[in-house]
């Protein structure tokens, strides 16, 4: 009996390409959690994330025979999932996101004097609150920044891998990521300045 769990991705892919359904299923089991989390983050609701999850693995099944391993299996499956999620987002927003897909210019070096401890909470309650604010800030990012921010800073993909998943240059990844981080930093600090004023 084959122990599929111990087989590396590329060998499982080769097996699945030979119509071994158990190998395919093992790949699904291995990636379903990560892909679900990824689509849920991109789409923001469980129903759409579930649909995209199903669509992604079905696309993977259909595309397996043409997969040549130019990129890793992991990068390939993330690329399918990301494309499916972005297509759904565009469909859902009927182009609304495209109308507002640029970030305001960063406030340059203003607000630099704020203490870094505000964004480095030691207290659990404050940390929870900060994470909620962070989630809201991420949701406000235009799509082309949000996807990169999620892949790089939340899922901790490398610049190279993010570029491959999205089919864009590394320079574009770096520049959009920097803009996204500045925007989020600014929103979080503004929020806490407001709070401090109230108190």
């Amino acid at each position: 009996m084959i122990d599929y769990k111990s087989i590396p991705d590329d060998s499982l892919v080769a097996q699945a390409q030979k119509k071994d359904y158990q190998a395919f299923e093992e790949l699904v089991k291995r990636y379903e959690g990560r892909i679900y989390g990824h689509t849920l983050r991109l789409l923001g609701n469980r129903e759409d994330a579930e649909d995209v999850l199903q669509e992604t693995f079905l696309n993977m099944f259909k595309g397996l025979e043409n997969f040549r391993g130019d990129s890793s299996f992991s990068t390939w499956i993330y690329r399918i999932a990301t494309n499916n999620a972005l297509m759904r987002l565009r469909k859902l927003s009927h182009g609304e996101r495209e109308l507002n897909d640029e970030l305001p210019p960063p406030e340059s070096m203003k607000r630099q004097a704020l203490a870094s401890h505000i964004l480095d909470p030691k207290d659990t309650l404050l940390e929870k609150e900060m994470l909620q604010e962070l989630n809201k800030a991420v949701d406000r990012l235009p799509e082309k920044y949000r996807t990169i921010f999620l892949l790089r800073d939340v899922e901790e993909f490398s610049t190279d891998r993010t570029a491959k998943v999205l089919g864009i240059s590394e320079a574009a990844v770096k520049s959009r990521l920097h803009r996204a981080r500045l925007y989020i930093r600014e929103l979080l600090l503004k929020k806490y300045e407001e709070k401090a004023e109230i108190q």
Binding site: L134, E155, R185
Partner: peptide, 17 residues
């Protein structure tokens, strides 16, 4: 100080995962 706050933002983001 700007570097530190940006770094803290990134560290916090990693916790979303």
């Amino acid at each position: 100080e700007f570097l530190e706050t940006l770094h803290s933002t990134i560290k916090l983001s990693k916790q979303l995962d």
